[in-house]
Simulated assay, not measured.
Amino acid sequence: MASLLLRIALGIMFLAHGLTKLLVLTPSGTAQYFESIGFPGFVGYLTIAFEIAGGALLLLGILTRIISSLTVIQMIVISFIHSTNGWSFSNTGGGWEYPAFMALSAFSLALLGTGKISVLPQRFHLLTK
């Protein structure tokens, strides 16, 4: 049950962030932001796609360990980007508190795996058990 609750929480968080980048910030605005912090603009588009697709896959319990592991990497990078803004995510520019927590949560889910409840029968969980 713990992995289900963690999967749902992370899935919703990633969907919310991906949809915010898509619908509020817009893809071009997200790409411009990524360029402003030194990344190629296309990384913004990839981030939108990963957060929406990854969030949906987590909610469904598909490829949980893989998506969670990729999420750990993403959140560690974001933690370093925000580290100059201090600890609290309410600081100007956002601190590293939230992405660090998300990295640890995703790492925990990668260790736990999908759990017993998902849209796929257990025999299809080759890489996610």
Rank of each mutant, 00 (worst) to 15 (best):
A2Y: 08
S3P: 08
S3E: 00
L4Y: 13
L6P: 09
I8W: 11
I8Y: 12
I8P: 08
L10N: 04
L10F: 01
L10W: 02
F14D: 09
F14T: 00
L15G: 06
A16I: 05
H17K: 00
L19W: 10
L19N: 02
T20R: 09
K21Y: 04
K21W: 00
L23Q: 14
V24Q: 15
L25P: 08
G29N: 11
G29W: 04
T30A: 04
Y33V: 02
Y33F: 07
F34I: 01
I37V: 15
I37E: 13
F39W: 05
P40R: 05
G41Q: 15
G41L: 02
F42Y: 13
F42Q: 10
V43Y: 14
G44S: 02
G44L: 00
L46Q: 12
L46G: 12
T47V: 14
T47Y: 03
T47R: 01
I48M: 04
I48W: 01
I48F: 04
A49V: 11
A49H: 08
F50P: 11
E51A: 03
I52D: 09
I52K: 12
A53L: 15
A53F: 10
G54E: 08
G54R: 07
G54N: 02
G55L: 02
L58A: 02
L59F: 04
L59V: 12
L60K: 10
L60R: 10
G61I: 07
G61E: 05
I62D: 05
L63S: 09
L63P: 06
T64F: 00
R65S: 03
R65K: 15
I66M: 12
I67M: 08
S68R: 07
L70Q: 09
I73P: 09
Q74V: 12
V77F: 05
V77H: 03
V77E: 09
I78D: 06
S79E: 02
S79N: 04
F80Q: 07
H82V: 07
H82Q: 09
H82N: 01
H82R: 07
T84E: 11
T84C: 07
T84P: 05
N85D: 03
N85F: 05
G86Q: 11
S88F: 06
S88H: 10
S90N: 11
N91W: 00
T92M: 14
G93S: 12
G95L: 09
G95M: 10
G95I: 01
E97Y: 07
Y98R: 05
P99M: 10
A100K: 00
A100E: 04
F101N: 06
S105D: 02
A106Y: 10
A106K: 01
F107T: 07
S108G: 13
L109C: 04
A110D: 09
L112D: 08
G113V: 13
G113Y: 08
T114F: 06
T114S: 03
K116D: 05
I117Y: 13
S118N: 02
L120M: 13
P121G: 13
P121Q: 14
Q122L: 14
R123I: 15
R123M: 15
F124N: 03
T128S: 15
